[in-house]
Each structure stands twice: as C-alpha cells, then as structure tokens.
Amino acid sequence: MDHQRRDTLKAGGGLGVFGLLVAAGVIKPELAQAAWNAQAFEARSLEAAFGALGAGKPAASDGVLITSPDIAENGAVVPVGVVSNIPGTEYIAIMVEKNPYMLAASFIIPEGTVAELQTRVKMSQTSDVHALVKANGKFYTSRKEVKVTLGGCGG
C-alpha cells in the first residue's frame, strides 16, 4: 500500500493535484496558466481573438510582412510566412479571418531567435491573412489577401 501517496492526496483536499503542486511551489502559477490559450483559439471574430491575446486594437505596421501566394490552389495547404522588422519582436500570431476559428498559430520568439518564420495553414475560402506581432509590449498587425480556389476546411 502506498501510504505516502494517500497522505499527499489527503493533503491536497479539494485543491486537486495541480493546485497542490502550485501551492507547494513545484509549479509556478505563471507556468500553470501558460497552457494552450483556448479563449484565443476559439475566438470567432478578429476582435475577439485580439482581445483574448491582450492585443486590444493593434496598430497597422509596414514592419510586419506576410509572404504567401496571392492565389492558393489548394486551401488545405497554404504556405504563410511572417517577417517582423520591428526591433524587440517577442511574439507572432497568424490568423485567417474567414476560417471558423481564425487564430491558426502563435509563436513566442525568445531573444536570439530571428523574428521570421514560415508555416502552412488551412483556408476555408478566399480571405485576409493577418499577422499580429508584439514588440516591446506593443502590438502591430498587417494583412494580406489570399484567394483560394479550393477550400481546405470542409468535408
């Protein structure tokens, strides 16, 4: 019989194991909250997604460049690249405005990592693709329209 485990669970009480770990200082609260940002990823509008990311109303900026084809033949695989020329860029997010859930991916850029990345996203239809950048605590954004011949989200 594992008595130690029982005692640990008892001590945890209603807190749950995770709460217990936080209380015991094993996991810092910041870390506990660092989990997947469901609120942002489930946002149905651009404003809601910006809000959930704490971006408010980001300023449009020429320093944020989106590289993607003007016309994507296959909406299931659309190459999207983002380059931020804004010094101190610490965060980049990619959004597809007309997808059911518009936030596609977000990236935390630690110091020493270049603020330039490429990935591939799905697009249900022709839409603006938005890039959101956080640099020195401020948010910037830019957009680019991508025309989709064949949507990539439906059945």
Binding site: A76, Y101, M102, A105, S106, I108, P110, G112, Q118, K122
Partner: peptide
C-alpha cells in the same frame, strides 16, 4: 534552451511544417 514555443489551432495544415532561424 527554448528557442521557439508555439501554440497551434486546428487551422494549421495536416502534417504541420515550420521553418525558423535562431542566432548561434
């Protein structure tokens, strides 16, 4: 040392591709 951390939603393509650079 963490050089990139990301969160994905379902809008990222199947078999996700990612390219980036870090100094050093």
């Amino acid at each position: 040392r963490v050089v990139l951390s990301a969160e994905f939603g379902p809008s990222v393509s199947a078999n996700p591709y990612l390219a980036f650079k870090f100094n050093g």
